[in-house]
Amino acid sequence: MDDQKHLIEVRDLFGPGPGTQEEPPTVVLHGVAGIGKSTLARQVRRAWEEGRLYRDHFQHVFYFNCRELAQSRTMSLAEHISKDWADSAAPIGQILSQHKKLLFILDNLDEPKWEFKGQSPKFHLNWSQQQQVHTLLGSLLKKTLLPEASLLITARITDLGKLIPLKQPCWVEVLGFSESIRRDYFYITLDHVCHALVSWLVCTCLKQQMDQGQELSLTCQTTIALCLHFFHILQAQSLGTKLWNFC
């Protein structure tokens, strides 16, 4: 609502709202395409796994990619949740019995053509039974399945409630990354690429020695020394061409 706009941090999405002590069970992150809604949703899951976010609030956080779910005709909630465990004997019943401590992230909920209209508002599903995907999601959204679980939804449109049944959602607009966060995000990505490049250089140089039947004796102590060694073993091209291809 226009008279309720204020900035909010991600860590406060499931805290008490302004002027109320009630914690919103359903939060909808909306915004234009490409603003970072899905990235933010995945970061929430990752931050929880690393113990940096919502650890005192939620015992389990489950991420649902609605684009992928739309490719399946039927599924059970237990089937989807068990994918997060390497052990097939995951205690699904015990986990879902404490649904007040659960957070379900439904990413890109508005993109598939769901058919929620016409579903009975009174139906109740068992978490272990196979159901059509839209029926299962509809039961989560209507709070007929795990009514005390929290939901974090991402969507492009603000009139999501006209298409999908939502129970008292809290609407939050994603404004995008600040300049400092964009810089950090870029540096992290660049750091990963650099690590991959260095690993590729090491493997290429070692493979060259193996192919020539030489003893593996790569002793480069710095990245510069490794690059010079790489240029040295590529003798078929001029140095200028080597540098250009390397860049």
Score class of each variant (00 low, 15 high):
E148N: 13
E50S: 12
S82T: 05
T39C: 10
K5Q: 12
N126C: 09
R183A: 15
P18A: 13
F231A: 03
R182M: 13
P165R: 08
Q119D: 09
C220Q: 08
S88G: 00
L175A: 15
R46Y: 09
Q168K: 15
N108P: 09
K113L: 05
K167A: 15
S88M: 00
L226R: 01
G93S: 07
L228S: 10
V44W: 00
L228G: 09
H30E: 00
R67I: 04
Q21G: 14
W200N: 13
Q131Y: 04
T158F: 11
R73H: 07
H195R: 09
F58V: 02
C220A: 10
T219Q: 15
L175K: 13
D159K: 14
Q221P: 07
M210C: 09
W85Y: 04
K37N: 02
L190D: 13
L160S: 09
T26W: 00
H124L: 11
G17W: 01
L7I: 14
A149E: 02
L146P: 01
A78W: 03
W171N: 11
V28T: 04
F230N: 07
F230S: 05
Y187S: 12
H232Y: 09
S72Q: 14
F246G: 06
R11N: 12
A41E: 00
H30I: 01
I224L: 11
G240S: 14
L228K: 11
S139K: 04
E22P: 03
L234N: 12
Q237E: 06
S178L: 14
A155N: 06
H60N: 09
L197W: 07
K113H: 08
I181V: 15
T20A: 06
C247S: 15
M1K: 13
S38G: 00
T26Q: 08
L96Y: 02
L151D: 02
L228M: 11
F64A: 03
K162N: 13
L175P: 13
A225Q: 14
S97P: 03
H99Y: 07
V27L: 03
H229P: 09
T158H: 14
D211A: 09
V32A: 07
K142P: 02
H80D: 06
Y187V: 10
Q221S: 13
I224S: 08
F231G: 01
Q208C: 13
I233C: 11
R55Q: 13
T222P: 04
P112I: 06
A149T: 06
Y185T: 06
R73W: 06
I95Y: 00
G213A: 11
T219K: 15
I153S: 08
G240L: 14
L140V: 02
Q71K: 13
K83P: 03
P24E: 04
F64W: 03
I35E: 01
F58W: 05
Q221L: 12
F64R: 02
N108A: 14
L40W: 01
L197S: 05
Q221G: 13
G17V: 05
L137F: 03
G51P: 03
K101M: 07
G118Y: 06
L69I: 04
I92L: 04
Q214N: 12
R182E: 12
D107Q: 01
K5E: 12
